[in-house]
Amino acid sequence: MMKEITLGQYIPGKSVLHKMDPRMKVILLVLFIVFIFASRNFVSLGIMAAAVFFVLCISGVSPRLYFKSIEAIIMIVIITSGLNLFYGTGEPLWEWRFLKITQAGINTALFIAIRITALVLISSVLTYTTSPTDLTDALERLMKPLSKLHVQVHEIAMMMTIALRFIPTLLEETDKIMSAQKARGADLESGNFIARIKSLVPILIPLFVSAFRRAFELAMAMESRCYHGGEGRTRMKVLKLSKRDYIALAVCSAVFTGVIVCSIVLPVTVRTGM
């Protein structure tokens, strides 16, 4: 049951996006998010949405998975744009007691729906096409300048790596402990909410104890392998920006310039923070 959970939802593949330098992907994702938020009219948002759609198409990941990630946030989209539908100002198109719908309200609602969906889709592209290890690696290298400000960048990245490595191991262990407790007659499935939470205690305690034991042994194994922090440490995989990264950067810059121009030239349709 537990083994079904895949972490980071990485889908191995051979698309251009899979082969891109993870650092470039992270940077471009941040820029995408910024420009999706900066769009103030339908044309610029339209350009961003088209760009997101194009990225989805070349990612080589099945559309089903993208629908799944939209499904997860569909309620949020409906609630936020539903609320905004009634908050517009101006001439009401439809009115019932205190509720009124205006053209501005419809615009905002539509705008927000597109914006949230685009945000979620572009973020899932990153997690679908980048393995968790590459992602941690990219974050460590991108945050490196922060170590001058005494942020423990290497330590954070190491913790992420170890956490990722141990998630499947601990899930397997949880499964084992649950079976062991069930075999001794523990009832994990019935009773009300409180009773069920209480029944988790005999699972969590052994899990914690074993996690600490594992941590001690891992620390010993790491020390035996000459680990002494990030100082003087080299990496086997050298991240190198290649031609495709620069092409991606150029294409995205063109799109972003288009968005900036449209935002300046065309009138603002929607004034909203979200």
Binding site: T133, A221, T234, K237
Partner: peptide, 30 residues
């Protein structure tokens, strides 16, 4: 040093990256 439980000695989530852990700590060229 190799310990009893292999699960508690592996650091990375990919085999080759785990094997690279020791040499990386020694500061060897990629």
């Amino acid at each position: 040093l190799v310990l009893q439980n292999p699960d508690n000695q592996l650091v990375a989530s990919i085999v080759e990256e785990d094997v690279a852990f020791g040499p990386e700590n020694l500061g060897i060229k990629p």
